[in-house]
Design a binder for these strands. Structure first.
Length: 569
RNA sequence: CGGGCUGUAGCGCAGCUUGGUUAGCGCGCAGCGUUUGGGACGCUGAGGUCGUCGGUUCGAAUCCGACCAGCCCGACCA
């Protein structure tokens, strides 16, 4: 491509409000433009990168036996009703109606639709099957942000496996794990596999591939000693146990004027340290008032609350709801003697005694609380958010917590979708059994952004050769110099015919502008052609990532570049 | 969904408090000239329903109201 003819609108100024480095660079370098909140146009450079990412994914999926198909983005609502996910995913569904008044949904994911297609499978002899598509998803995120990292319309490679039993599922799951690892390696990102919450997908197991980056939105607990890694939505940890002094035979109420918080009670004369307090939170789970109990210095993790209870709609109770339920305002709540609402207690409260909690009477607390004796706990759950420094559940060493981008996610679904949609086959015994499914997703544009997050410097993007929009840029330093243009044109022709993707900077710009633009858009290699080198029959070859420059003769330039490009793939 | 903020030329912004000629600046863009191996300079010029609708007023980018859009923090999120 001749740059003078290309649509590459680079910008001098940073776009407003671009907090993520990848967003700022992709906009400045002319890859993307925002159309509306969470919706982006991909300009030619962006489209080229996207296409290359897709091709890598496609190759790896085909390699593990995947067959590509393409399902609609527009779905009838009634299929989604069958699995209950019009409820479970209600807050992100784009919905619309057609001219006949029918309800439709823009697909946020495709388990239902693939399962519907899979009803055509009839025998175990047809299994295993692995189907995938590369297609546009729509999710009405409440708050899109960080450019391509969190959007409302995006391309996803989603694959679905169908097996007659869980052993088959395990095989397909492991194959995806391997394929995803290769994909991220080829894309030029480090992705850490971590245990994750399955959320609204349900199912038994899921693994996320996380690209470490402060621009991400997931927190990962990681053990540097043994390699344990899990999303904090699911991570557990060990903490030192607390020895409680024996308390009174009965809990006793005492006045605590003005005490509203855990910290207030720590500082209150006659109060208690946070470890000796019970924190009582009022939640509403699927419309049902519920008390959530944790140690005073621990925080609830709502995803754990959701996963532990199976509730779909979770929200903190309003002040008036809590007062109606317990008779006191937040700040004086407790579960001692409470009957009626479900009481969920964090595992760390088990066996604790002589603790302090709210009395459900403003300005009063209760001390000497023995959890087992005094509180009618409905269910014990792991509800506590893991904090850095706590012990690894596998080996006990101190955990680290880091931020990352969810670049891929693989799920063992089981039979939830196949049962709901009637996707069954006959097994070897002639018995009709639901297909055992897995689903596996990679967000294409999000990975584009993740690559940029991990591969940039002060001058701009540094693409790996594998997905660079062009592999080489030829910079003609002086376009009105006949010798320069003769050599540059020749190189452009020869390299292109050698199979190298070349961007030929033949623009009427000053050299500094051309160098800076080439670095901003991140082309891995640059061949600089100008009078200064041509007097010695050489051109300059430079590598974007290292900045290293070398001179090669005109005759050997094509071979050098071709070797570099092929070596970089 | 709660809180905060912003909409003025392709991009980044000033002007609004205190209403009053042809609404400005930087970058970018077009023409001409000088320049030319790391973001050049001069001259000339094109480009704006001041987010939308309504109100107040002799007069609204400016004051008032509603709406729309976007951004940030939080909540939420396969």
């Amino acid at each position: 491509m001749r740059w003078s003819q290309a649509f590459i609108p680079t910008l001098r100024d940073d776009p407003a409000d671009a907090e993520a480095a990848s967003h700022r660079l992709l906009v400045r370098a002319g890859y993307i433009r925002q159309l509306m909140s969470g919706v982006y146009s991909l300009l030619p450079l962006g489209h080229r990168v996207r296409s290359k990412i897709i091709e890598i994914i496609r190759e790896e999926l085909n390699d593990i036996g995947g067959q590509e198909l393409l399902l609609p983005a527009l779905h009838p609502r009634e299929i989604w009703e069958k699995t209950g996910r019009t409820e479970a995913m209600a807050d992100i569904l784009f919905t619309l109606s057609d001219l006949r008044g029918g309800d439709a949904i823009l697909g946020p994911t495709h388990e239902e639709i693939f399962a519907t297609v899979a009803t055509e499978l009839t025998s175990y002899k047809q299994l295993p099957q692995l189907w995938y598509q590369i297609q546009t998803k729509f999710r009405d995120e409440a708050r899109p942000k960080s450019g391509l990292l969190r959007v409302r319309e995006f391309t996803m490679k989603d694959s679905y496996s169908f097996d007659v039993d869980t052993a088959g599922l395990d095989v397909q799951f492991d194959r995806h794990f391997a394929a995803y690892s290769r994909i991220f390696e080829r894309l030029g990102v480090t992705a850490v596999a971590v245990e994750a919450s399955s959320g609204a997908m349900g199912g038994s197991d899921s693994i996320e591939f996380i690209v470490p980056s402060p621009a991400g939105e997931d927190d990962i607990a990681h053990c540097p000693a043994c390699g344990y890694a899990a999303n904090v939505e699911r991570a557990s940890s060990t903490i030192p146990s607390i020895h409680d002094e024996p308390g009174p035979n009965q809990p006793e109420r005492f006045p605590t004027p003005g005490v509203r918080t855990i910290l207030d009670l720590v500082e209150f004369d006659g109060g208690a340290t946070a470890e000796r307090q019970i924190k009582t939170l009022g939640y509403v789970l699927d419309g049902e008032p519920t008390l959530v109990l944790l140690r005073g210095d621990h925080d609830v993790h709502e995803q754990k609350l959701q996963d532990g209870t199976g509730a779909i709609d979770i929200r903190p109770g309003q002040a008036d709801e809590i007062r109606e339920l317990l008779g006191a305002d937040p700040g004086s709540l407790g579960a001692v003697g409470v009957e009626g609402p479900k009481i969920l207690a964090d595992l760390q409260l088990a066996d604790r005694a002589n603790m302090v909690t709210g009395a459900n009477l403003d300005d009063h607390h209760i001390r000497g609380v023995d959890v087992a004796r005094d509180i009618a706990v409905t269910e014990w759950l792991d509800l506590r958010a893991v904090v850095a420094g706590e012990g690894c559940p596998e080996c006990g060493e101190a955990l680290e917590v880091f931020r990352g981008i969810e670049a891929g996610h693989i799920f063992k679904l089981g039979t939830k979708f196949s049962e709901a949609l009637g996707a069954t086959v006959l097994n070897t015994n002639g018995v009709s059994v639901p297909l055992v499914m897995g689903s596996y997703g990679i967000g294409v544009e999000r990975n584009m952004a993740a690559v940029v997050e991990m591969n940039h410097d002060d001058d701009g993007i540094v693409w790996p050769v594998s997905i660079a929009p062009y592999e080489v840029v030829i910079t003609a330093v002086k376009i009105d110099d006949e010798a320069t243009m003769t050599v540059a044109n020749r190189l452009y022709y020869d390299l292109t015919h050698a199979g190298v993707e070349v961007l030929f900077d033949d623009r009427d710009e000053r050299p500094g502008v051309k160098f800076n633009d080439a670095e901003l858009i991140g082309i891995p290699y640059r061949v600089t052609v100008g009078p200064r080198g041509l007097v010695n029959d050489v051109v300059e070859l430079s590598e974007r990532r290292s900045g290293e420059k070398s001179e090669v003769t005109i005759e050997t330039a094509v071979d050098h570049v071709t070797a570099l490009v092929n070596g970089g793939k």
